[in-house]
Nucleic acid binder design. Structure first.
Lengths: 420, 420
DNA sequence: ACAGTTTCCCGTAAATGC
DNA sequence: TGCATTTACGGGAAACTG
């Protein structure tokens, strides 16, 4: 059997995609060395929708797989498959919830005979969300965040039938943590304020701080994104993905203002000298895009705010964003090619900020019209997995390098006697 | 169960990828209406390497599934899975052949009781190649072509232990057919000559016509591609893919010379006026690339032959090749942007050839440095499946819209009595 | 007809095994 | 160790189903 089995999304635990392997681990909190190789554990999943667990779903607890002498069992290469009943009907009992709000429990069962007494032991994971396609991940992960942000309950699978409201402060902390847990930088107050406006609409700052946020179907779902056909979470996830895969170094340096409204952008750029620019995420693109906006003077000497169409991941595949910034030129009034980008807001010379992320040879480009010559060798922020070396699927959240910012600090399916 | 089950590669029959569904059909050549719903057919695969057939592998013959009143049975949603023996050993008995040269037979078995006599019927597909990853397709398909080009034998699974040689004429026909069967245009003598030089090295035309080509490991394998690390077939397949998905219309029009050596390119372009250009496939890129080469005069009035780095599929994703051609500009001696492309060889004005494939608004581009504005809406030759509406996995090759150009005209697993 | 959900399967990357 | 081959799974598209 194959050995290395990294769980599917290192920084998205508690979401399981059908057909994709996952791993989990149970340990016995009470130390009973004499039970080594005595406890046979079985993994199951609740029956609210019919899933089958494929893979080796029983295992005997032992001391080797633990590092502190207690007993544990690790299940690897498990996968979930939905069991369509008969000729294909959905098995979901509670059809009122969408799949990404449906919570499931992975349970671990065993029985001990101690001093002639049979003791049933049982524990379970935190609620998990089961998805069938990766495109459901953003909403599924949002459910996990919302749950752990608002409850300590270890198994409230009906949470989303009446989801509690959250305060903006709580949501802000979670949003920032989404960045800080996978990059070297969380979100600033300014960035969070922009997101708050997006979520809460036009309110004063004070109102926002007081405001309570409703869950998906109300404030955070698709409706709220002005009929764009995608949820806030999808939009944000694609930006996080863009940051991690294509512009991580620039993000870590703090060069990307990212979340800023066009109004505020105009307000802070207008007083600045021509050539001042900032980097901003696309608000309209579901896919995650980044653009730059700069100040320039038109023929009449009037200040203009300009920007390019956002660059997508596809385009950043063939040229790094730093190189795009360094090489970007427009034709001025006298038909000469010039770069409109001089100072990164507030006043960092662009060479100082981006020079070190460019290949030496590829500064200016002699040709136009998509000459692929200039976009051949790639210089990217490394496409690297940021997960820690130790990992479990239902981890103590400390293992993620950060604690869940909500109230729940996570649990690693620990075995306690549940029934006599 | 799902119904529409298009076989995996409409224009690549006889190659089966493990885990991917395929379909096949048997019919009884002799008309026996009284056997309707009497014959139970079982599909099997030979045991040279252990594959299991997953899906419904027995079926009763009936008249409905046939359109001419004869009996037939169609097996849908079959998949192959390799059975790794014990802890993972290869089950291949003849390890001397690489997987893409290993031939397998799908067999169909049944028995009839006629006038008190038990008759075993059995038939089989043409030899098939089983692959586990799509990257093996080009070589697998080459094996299918080579087999059908050189033998009529219905089941010579050891064909590649001593593969026969082919003549250049045979190979040329097959190569051209690769294009003519999926586009509206095959290969010209000039294009074939270029490919012949690639395959046969430096020989006179007469010698080439006489020459016999050895199979893969000799002339057509990786060694022959000058140590580039990919076979002729991989290179050619990627070009075919590029043509079909990105530049089909231009190919159908005959605007793409494509296969031409750099020497010959220089020879035919040099006498032409500046601005004359032609379109050529990249010779060095495994991925399939296309470039243009043009004539220009340098400062001293000397004729120069120039070309751009080949465009890849990735780049053609965001801008159509016609638009790239129409918009391509370089800076001339006086620092003015001009298009070096004027006449498509021999003397077609580029607007006449490519104008109709461009969006009206996107002719010249004002900005440089990868402005994504100009590459937002896509105009592509449609990504369309060219397969005919009627199809079977082991088809009469006529169903492909063309006959296999080799000696073998194909067979649709027809049932004949094989043993008493 | 439609939208939520699942399935299909390519293509890249990683793992595996000889 | 290297290389041939398989497995894993994201992501886009098609199919499915209430």
């Amino acid at each position: 059997e194959r050995q290395p089995c990294m769980p599917m999304h290192p920084d998205r635990p508690l979401v399981i995609k059908t057909g994709v392997q996952f791993t989990n681990k149970v340990r016995l909190l009470v130390k009973f060395p004499e039970l080594n190789y005595q406890l046979k554990i079985k993994v199951c999943i609740d029956k609210s929708r019919k899933f089958n667990i494929l893979g080796t779903n029983t295992k005997v607890m032992n001391m080797e797989e633990s590092n502190n002498g207690s007993l544990s069992a690790e299940f690897k290469h498990l996968t979930l498959r939905e069991q369509r009943c008969g000729n294909g009907g959905r098995t979901n009992s509670d059809a009122s919830l969408i799949v990404t709000e449906e919570l499931h429990l992975i349970t671990f069962e065993t029985e001990v005979y101690h001093q002639g007494l049979k003791i049933d032991l049982e524990t379970h994971s935190l609620p998990v969300v089961v998805i069938s396609n990766i495109c459901q991940m953003p909403n599924a992960w949002a459910s996990i965040l919302w749950y752990n942000m608002l409850t300590n309950h270890p198994k409230n699978v009906n949470f989303f039938t009446k989801p509690p409201v959250g305060t903006w402060d709580q949501v802000a902390e979670v949003l920032s943590w989404q960045f800080s847990s996978t990059t070297k930088r969380g979100l600033t107050i300014e960035q969070l304020t922009t997101l708050a406006e997006k979520l809460l609409g036009e309110m004063t700052c004070l109102e926002k701080a007081m405001c309570q946020l409703l869950w998906l179907s109300d404030h955070l779902g698709q409706e709220n994104m002005a009929g764009k056909g995608f949820s806030f979470w999808v939009w944000l996830d694609n930006i996080i993905d863009l940051v991690k895969k294509y512009i991580l170094a620039l993000w870590n340096e703090g060069y990307i203002m990212g979340f800023i409204s066009k109004e505020r952008e105009r307000a802070i750029l207008s007083p600045k000298p021509p050539g001042t620019f900032l980097l901003r995420f696309s608000e309209s693109s579901k896919e995650g895009g980044i653009t730059f906006t700069w100040v320039e003077k038109d023929i009449n000497g009037k200040t203009q705010i300009q920007s390019v169409e956002p660059y997508t991941k596809q385009q950043l595949n063939s040229m790094s964003f730093a190189e795009i910034i360094m090489g970007y030129k427009i034709m001025d009034a006298t038909n000469i090619l010039v770069s409109p980008l001089v100072y990164l807001f507030p006043e960092i010379p662009k060479e100082e900020a981006f020079g070190k992320y460019c290949r030496p040879e590829a500064a200016p480009e002699p040709e136009i019209g998509g000459d692929p010559m200039s976009s051949k060798p790639l210089l990217h922020t490394p496409k690297k997995c940021l997960c820690p070396s130790v990992f479990m699927d239902f981890p103590d959240c400390e293992l993620l390098g950060n604690t869940f910012p909500g109230t729940n600090s996570g649990n690693t399916s620990d075995l306690f006697p549940m029934s006599p």
